[in-house]
Every structure is written in C-alpha cells, then in structure tokens.
Measured scan of single mutants.
Amino acid sequence: IRCIGVSNRDFVEGMSGGTWVDVVLEHGGCVTVMAQDKPTVDIELVTTTVSNMAEVRSYCYEASISDMASDSRCPTQGEAYLDKQSDTQYVCKRTLVDRGWGNGCGLFGKGSLVTCAKFTCSKKMTGKSIQPENLEYRIMLSVHGSQHSGMIVNDTGYETDENRAKVEVTPNSPRAEATLGGFGSLGLDCEPRTGLDFSDLYYLTMNNKHWLVHKEWFHDIPLPWHAGADTGTPHWNNKEALVEFKDAHAKRQTVVVLGSQEGAVHTALAGALEAEMDGAKGKLFSGHLKCRLKMDKLRLKGVSYSLCTAAFTFTKVPAETLHGTVTVEVQYAGTDGPCKIPVQMAVDMQTLTPVGRLITANPVITESTENSKMMLELDPPFGDSYIVIGVGDKKITHHWHRSGSTIGKAFEATVRGAKRMAVLGDTAWDFGSVGGVFNSLGKGIHQIFGAAFKSLFGGMSWFSQILIGTLLVWLGLNTKNGSISLTCLALGGVMIFLSTAVSA
C-alpha cells in the first residue's frame, strides 16, 4: 500500500470489461488503480535517471590570480610587451599612462603600459546536455494484498515479495511487465516523455548541487567559461569578468580578483528545477510519464477462499488518510488461513446495510499462523458509518465519521480527471477507425466523469442509474429551450454510458 502517505494521489477506475487503462505517473504523486474483478494496485514513479550526459560548457565562479607582471614604455618608444601576453592562462590589459620627467621619461606624453596576471579557477559549475534516449524511469508497484503497516513504502525485498514489484522503462524499451506472483502480471506500455523539453534544458552542477536550467539563461551567464570537458589546462574565455584592473600608474597597475560568485548564482537559480546525482547518473524529480496498463493477466487472489471465522482485533486505531479513506490494521487469532476477511461498512448496526467501498479488493489472510496481521483500506461514505470486521458474535466494529460532501468530492474528481486527460493529450485517442474513435470517446468520458459518477451514484443499482439517464434524455427531447435540451441530452447520455461502463 504505497499511496496512503502521498498527498498527491489519483484514483483511476477501469471500465467494466476493459483490459487496459491509461494513467499519468508523476514525481511526488501516486496512482491507485481499481477495476472490477482485479486486485487494487498502487503505482508510483520513484526516480527518473539520466546517463551519458555530455559537458557543454563550464563557468568559473571563484578564481585566484598570481605571478603579476607589468612592462611600460616612454612616449615614442613603441608598445610595451610581455611574453605572458601569448599565454592563455594569463589575463592581460594594455593601456596608456601619462609619462614625463617625473617618472623617468625625457618627453612628456602618453606611454604604453601592459599588465598580466595568471588566472586560476578555484571553483566552477558545469552544464551538461541531456539526450531523451538516455532517460530511465523506475516504477514501483504494490498490490493491496496481505501486507501490514511495516511494509508500507518499503522498497527492500521486492524481489521475493509477490505484493510488490519494480520495473524500469526507457525510450528504447518502453514496454515492461511486472510479475506479482499469485496476482498474475501487469503489463506497462509507457510513452517516455517527461513533459520537459530537454532540447531547451541543461543539467547544471555547482558545488555538489544540481538544477535543470534553460539553455539561453545558461549561455548568457557573465562569467569566465570554457567549452567542452575539462582537459586539465582549460582555456578560459572572458577571464576579465572576475578580474579587475585598478587605476594605472606610470610603471605598474594593481590587479585584484573578485570574490566568489556562488551567492549571486544561487539567487539567479531561484525557482529552477532541482535535481540530484546518483553516482555518474543524474536524478530528476520533475515531469511525468504516461503509461497504458494492460490488466488482462491480472487476477484476484483468494476468490475461492472461505470466510475467516475466528476473532479479529484492531492492532491500531483506524486512521484517516490524506485522501479521506480509512486504513485499518487487524490481527487474526485463527489458524484456518488462508481465508477471506469479512469486512464491510454499514450505516447502522441493526440492518448492516453496506455503504462505501473497499479500496483493498478481496482482502485475505494468507498465513495459517496465529496472530497474522493484515492492513486494508476503505472508502467510507460522508457522515457517520460503522466499520464491521468478522462474522457472528466475534465481529468487531468501529464508529467512523467522514466530513465533507459527495458533491465536493465529485467536483474534485472531475477536475482531476480533466487534468489527466489534458496530460494524456492525443495519445488517449485513436482515429484509425470508426470503432477506435468511439472507443476513445468512451475512454475520455470515463477518465473525466467516472470518479464523479461513482461518488454521486455508486450506491444505486445499474438499472436505477439507466432509468435516471433515460429520464434526462426524455426531458431533453421534450424541452423547447435549446440549451436546457442539449444539457439534459448530454447528461442523460453520459449517465447511461457510465452506468453500463463503470464497474460497481
């Protein structure tokens, strides 16, 4: 259960009878995928790494000078000259100064003066180019299975845990398959586009800190620079940016070097996208990844198990997540596992009318040892309800109150669905055939309105939902006002479609 501690969480529900669903994975976010007769899966884009970055340009932001020398000439005696002028490691300046009897010249006039100092770069920052084909995306998957609280967001041991898996995709191999043991396998067909235009970005490294910066900004930095990788004795261009020549006297000129420019660069980098280094690879934390999940090989585990009949206890007080759902960790005293956990939410304890829904599909106890633990997640209705676990006299209950409203949740879900469709863009549509167009249209309606429909009408039977949709269509056909007619027709059509397409 990876997503319960992530604030940016998206719930995606598969269409009834569908074998695939489109998701948008982004750094700092987590996606929970639910479908009829399929286990619930949490998917998170953990890291995006980039390798084989080529150094484009380096800037010196802290330097020192040494070996200063000057040469001067009297008027009419030609130009002052130093051998160091031809050495690229030196920074030199030529000027004219007033000369006369007082400073060793027989004539009054302008004399030539040249001053040089050896330039040494102490600290530099480097910009590297990123090729999209060198990106690698690491995705962690977790099935809502027989897990306890100690396994949440624990990325170790996934090789031997059938509840978890790690997959890596690249532009050259965008397809992967996550093996989930008894739950089958989940196929991923990803489109490795981060949403960032790397043709316009460089990877900047300064003092063990890293950013993504725009090329134009990078090339306009007014500091000494050299092109390409460091060859040991780089040729620094624009050395004068960190060196200041003071007022010249008759035979000498003082040279000083400016202080470190790291603070000024940090100020200019305010708002830039931060990154990290992992050995020789860069780690990015921006952008998104679009994936199509193929769920035809994914299956529920323990459908044929019998119900657990022994007593359950709450190991922890049920807690609310950031998303309005409830996490419950229970301990089973029996030894008759594997068995299914009898769990439901009810409005009252007399009729036990089921409300809400299970995020953890078909929760089971897989071990036959005593005191096995299991964590599950529920989506309670707004208002008061009861969490009921167990059967008969051994069942345990917990009162729950959820604040908020169904309308607010439906609106929030619609906005999130619209954002998801905007990110998917043209990849969500198939114009290759008439059937493809209608299929894409259905998927689009489901992406945007599916979660809201589930919130508003999830407790009704599909037949009642179709009746309401048919009534809206009838009202649309018999209303003389054009805008009201079109609105009723659209709402009725969407409702009829979703009542037959969205899983219960």
Rank of each mutant, 00 (worst) to 15 (best):
V256P: 00
A270V: 15
T267P: 05
Q147K: 13
F285M: 09
E13W: 10
V21N: 02
G157Q: 09
L486S: 01
S199Y: 02
N208G: 07
S185A: 13
K239P: 10
F449I: 06
H148T: 12
F183Q: 11
N371W: 03
D67Y: 06
G492L: 00
D10Q: 02
V213N: 10
H226S: 07
T500V: 00
H27Y: 08
F411C: 09
G337H: 13
H323Y: 11
T487I: 12
R73H: 12
L307P: 13
H144C: 10
A272K: 11
V114C: 04
G228P: 14
D71A: 13
G259P: 13
W211Q: 09
A165F: 03
I387E: 04
T160M: 07
N481K: 13
G417F: 09
M349D: 04
V167A: 15
A333M: 07
Y158S: 13
H249V: 05
A319E: 02
T156G: 01
P222W: 11
I496A: 06
A54L: 01
S149T: 10
V326M: 08
M349P: 15
Q447C: 15
M295I: 08
G184Q: 09
D98P: 03
S199R: 03
F431S: 12
V328P: 01
W400Y: 12
H210A: 01
I484A: 10
T120C: 08
C60T: 04
S464N: 11
Q253R: 07
T500F: 07
P363F: 06
M15C: 04
P174M: 11
L223K: 09
D426K: 15
K316F: 03
S70Q: 07
G78V: 04
L298D: 03
R193I: 03
V494P: 00
E274C: 06
G436P: 00
A428V: 14
Y59C: 10
T170C: 07
K166V: 00
T254E: 06
T406E: 04
V355E: 05
P39G: 04
L196A: 09
S146I: 02
F449A: 05
C190M: 11
K215F: 02
G436M: 10
V347C: 01
E79M: 12
T88G: 01
R164F: 03
Y90R: 08
I152H: 12
M68W: 12
S149R: 03
G408P: 08
K301L: 05
V46A: 13
S122H: 13
R357H: 06
T309H: 02
T414Q: 10
M374S: 14
G28V: 05
D71P: 00
H398T: 12
K290L: 07
A264H: 09
S503R: 01
T406L: 01
C308Q: 08
G435M: 13
Y137N: 08
T170I: 05
P234M: 05
L352R: 11
V213G: 09
L378A: 03
I396R: 08
E136C: 15
W429C: 09
V347F: 11
G263W: 12
S455M: 13
Y137M: 10
G182V: 01
Y386L: 13
F457L: 13
L322M: 14
V257T: 11
I396Q: 06
A264V: 13
Y203P: 02
V243Y: 04
K290A: 05
W236V: 01
H399Q: 15
T353C: 00
V317P: 15
Y305P: 02
G232D: 10
K38P: 00
I221H: 05
A80Y: 11
V50W: 07
Y305C: 11
V317M: 07
V473C: 12
V328D: 03
G127H: 03
D220G: 12
P234L: 15
T95H: 08
K215Y: 14
S304M: 13
R73G: 05
Q331E: 14
W217C: 13
F218T: 04
S173A: 15
I43W: 09
T126I: 15
R299M: 09
W429P: 05
Y61A: 02
V343G: 00
F312G: 04
V6Y: 03
P192G: 02
P318K: 07
T19N: 06
Y158V: 04
Q85T: 03
G109N: 05
K480P: 01
I496C: 14
R252Y: 08
V41F: 15
T156K: 15
M374P: 00
V317N: 13
R420G: 09
M34T: 12
V6P: 00
G458T: 04
L201N: 03
V355L: 13
L472R: 00
H210D: 04
D189E: 14
G450W: 13
H401W: 14
A428T: 09
L25S: 09
E274Y: 07
K283Q: 00
A54C: 05
L472Y: 04
K239I: 12
E55H: 06
V97F: 07
L269S: 07
T40V: 04
D161W: 02
I43C: 05
E168K: 05
E79I: 11
I396T: 15
F431D: 07
L284H: 03
T179E: 08
G459C: 05
F108V: 06
G28S: 15
W20R: 10
V326F: 04
S385G: 12
L498S: 02
L82Q: 02
V46H: 04
T76H: 03
S86I: 15
H214L: 06
L307Q: 11
K394E: 13
Y332A: 07
S16N: 05
A248V: 15
Y332R: 03
G102Y: 06
L441R: 02
I1C: 04
S483H: 14
Q331D: 08
C74W: 12
A311R: 08
F198G: 01
F382Q: 11
A241C: 04
V437K: 00
N172K: 05
H219C: 03
S66A: 15
F431P: 06
S433E: 02
L475N: 09
V21L: 15
G78F: 05
K290V: 02
